[in-house]
């Protein structure tokens, strides 16, 4: 129990900080922090997959796209309440995630990375083919748009709920099964864990999280779902976020989300390289540096710091 107290403390600190922030920040900065909240949801989901079951995915942008299009299409055609569309995005992506997770069972390591990468490139092509329903390259415009503050609230409330959900899932039997799947498949099978079920389940859950993030993401782009917004780059961002986060601590995931949510935007204002054109120079270099310097991500850094503090 003792080691859970600081975790509870940090949760509270984050919650207080997030509820105070909107009163002090400018509208633009609120939208930035909302952006971090959106990535928090997606990175949290991907972290369940890569961190807990050891499966790699460079394709979670595809699930975000599916979630985003769910929201936009439902809003366009039926003026559905946006919160309801988020639930739909969760459900649809959960099912699609399970379906993708099934073949993924037979792939591991590099092969899974290849397959999911191809998925990330392929899915944004689909709206071009079914352009009547999915709007083609022009995209789909939702019937309603939201304010920055609304999005901020929605993103962080969703983050809180999904974080609690992840905690509930991971602390129990399912969490143990996930970890067993990562650490040793043979041992997991030997101790009677139904690996295929759990690995597929992990894929479904993480895809569902990405779906919610995608729905929020579309609301953040003035309710506009467009293929180019869901390109490979988004998938790469998510994977980087999960890697920066390291293994499943709240602070790690916050750091990962902030890293990929803020850096590409903020680094546009870095001097010399500056300009919107050069921002990926900073972001890409940061990704590489973080991987070279923090092998276990931000969570690993925290553990090391804690060990130092204790010694």
């Amino acid at each position: 129990m003792r080691h859970r107290l600081p975790e509870l403390g940090s949760l509270l600190a984050v919650a207080v900080l997030l509820s105070v922030l909107p009163f002090t920040l400018s509208d633009y900065n609120i939208s930035l922090v909302a952006q971090v909240g959106i990535f928090f949801v997606a990175v949290l989901g991907l972290n369940i997959l890569t961190g807990y079951t050891g499966q790699i995915s460079i394709g979670h942008g595809a699930f975000m796209a599916i979630g985003g299009y769910t929201t936009a299409v439902m809003s366009r055609d039926h003026d559905t309440n946006l919160v309801v569309t988020m639930l739909m995005a969760f459900a649809i992506c959960f099912v699609v995630g399970l379906l993708v997770g099934l073949p993924a069972l037979r792939l591991s390591g590099v092969y899974l990375a290849l397959a999911t990468f191809a998925l990330a490139v392929s899915v944004p092509q689909l709206p071009l083919k079914w352009s009547k329903f999915l709007g083609g390259s022009g995209g789909v415009q939702s019937h309603r748009t939201v304010t920055h503050l609304w999005l901020y609230g929605a993103a962080w409330i969703a983050s809180a709920i999904l974080f609690a959900l992840a905690w509930l899932i991971l602390r129990g039997r399912i969490g143990r099964a996930f970890r067993a799947a990562r650490d040793s498949e043979i041992a997991a099978v030997a101790s009677g864990i139904e690996l295929p079920i759990y690995k597929t389940l992990a894929f479904g859950i993480s895809a569902a999280y990405a779906g919610v993030a995608g729905a929020l993401f579309v609301m953040g782009t003035n309710g506009f779902a467009q293929p180019s917004e869901f390109g490979v780059f988004l998938s790469l961002q998510l994977l980087v976020g999960a890697a920066v986060a390291g293994l499943g601590s709240l602070w790690g995931i916050l750091a990962g989300a902030a890293f990929v949510g803020l850096l590409p935007t903020v680094s546009g204002s870095v001097p010399v390289i500056g300009s919107a054109h050069g921002r990926n120079v900073v972001f890409g270099a940061a990704v590489i540096l973080v991987m070279l310097l923090l092998p276990e991500g931000f969570a690993g850094l925290l553990t090391r710091l804690r060990r130092l503090a204790r010694a």
Partner: peptide, 10 residues
């Protein structure tokens, strides 16, 4: 993989 992904972005 992530280092090559970073390289992609860079």
């Amino acid at each position: 993989v992530i280092v090559t992904v970073g390289l992609f972005i860079l």
